Simulated assay, not measured.
Amino acid sequence: MQNRIAIIAGGAVALLLFLLVNAAFIVDERKRALVLQFGQVVREPIEAPGLYFKVPFIQNVSFYEDRILPLETNSLEVTPLDDRRLVVDAFARWRIVDTIRFRQAVFDEAAAVQRLGSILTAALREVLGSVTSDAVLSDQRALLMERIRDATRLNARELGVEIVDVRLRRTDLPQQNLQATFERMQAEREREAADERARGAEAAQRVRANADRQAIELVSEAQRESNIIRGEADAQRNAIFAEAFGQDPEFFSFFRSMQAYEAALGGGRSSMVMSPDSEFFNYLKDERGASRERQR
C-alpha cells in the first residue's frame, strides 16, 4: 500500500515538474517574445527580460530579436539625372518596434530582410535618380543618405520595423565607363594645364616687356644725364681754355700744339705726309728756323 502511494506521489511530482518545465520560459535581454495559442497571439508582447509562464501544450512562444540588426544590399546600378550611371553599395540598420505587426507582415527575420532590401533598393533608385552624379559624389551625400533613410523608414513602418540608419558605403562608376571617364578627366586637366601655361607665358611676356621698357628708359635717362654732364664739362673746359688764351696766347698756342702732337704721333707707328714748312711743325723747328719763320 505504501509502495503504491509512493509511486503515485512520485508520478505526480514528475508530472508537475514536466508541466512546470513546459509552462515556464525565459526571455533574454536581447529578445522579445510572443505567446501564441493555435497560431494566434494571446498576450501582449513580452519585451522585458525575465521568467514567464504559459499554458503547457496549448500555448507556445516565438522569440524575436530586440537588437539593432544589419541589412546588407548587393551592388546596385542607378542612373542620376545626368545619365552617368553609378554603382552604389549601401547598408542599413533596423530593429523591430511592433512585434505583433512584424509577425503578421513578414512572420520572421529572413522574410523581413528580403522585404526591407526591396524597400531600400527602391528608395535608393528614387532619391539618387532625382539628383546629378556630382551631387552623389560631393558633400551633399550626407543629405542624400538622410532622404533615403526617411523614405525607407516610411515604407518599413508597415512591417513593424524602424530603420535606424542608412549609409552609402561605395559610389563608383561602372567598370566599362571608368576608362572613358579617366580620359575625359585627363583631357580636362590637360586643357587646364594649357590654359595655365598660356596665362603664364602672357604674364612672362608682360614682365619682359615692362623690364625692356624700364631698361630703355634707364639707359636713355643715363645717356641724357651723361650728355648734360659732358656738355657742362666741355663748357667749363672751353671757359678755362679761353681764360688761359687771354692770359698768355703764346703758351696757350704751345699747349694746344703739344696736344695735337700727342694725338697725331702718339701711336708710335703713325705716318704723316706734310710740308716741312707747315705751321704744324713750328714748335719742332730749331730756334733759328723759328726766328726766321717769325721774321717772315
Rank of each mutant, 00 (worst) to 15 (best):
V88P: 00
A112T: 02
V127P: 00
F63T: 06
D165Y: 02
Y283D: 04
T181K: 15
F281C: 04
A260E: 14
G231C: 08
A209N: 12
V13L: 15
G246N: 11
I5E: 06
L36N: 07
G200Y: 03
S253C: 05
F53M: 14
R125N: 06
V273I: 14
R191P: 07
R147M: 14
D172Q: 10
E293M: 13
F53S: 13
R4S: 07
F241Y: 12
D66P: 01
I5R: 08
V131W: 03
E217L: 05
V87W: 01
D150G: 06
A105H: 04
I8T: 05
W94K: 01
A92E: 01
D212R: 13
Y261M: 06
E162L: 03
A122C: 07
S133W: 05
E262N: 15
A198Y: 11
G39Y: 14
V61Q: 01
A112G: 04
N210P: 00
R237E: 15
A260K: 15
A222M: 11
G266W: 03
F255T: 10
I163G: 00
L218H: 10
Q59I: 02
A90D: 01
V273E: 03
Q176F: 12
Q179R: 12
S271E: 12
A235M: 11
R147I: 09
Q176G: 09
L173K: 02
S253W: 08
Y52M: 11
G266D: 10
R153D: 04
L218T: 15
L19F: 10
E126M: 04
S278A: 11
A260N: 12
S62I: 04
A260M: 14
F241A: 13
R101L: 11
R167T: 10
T121W: 03
F91C: 07
G268I: 03
Q179K: 11
E77W: 08
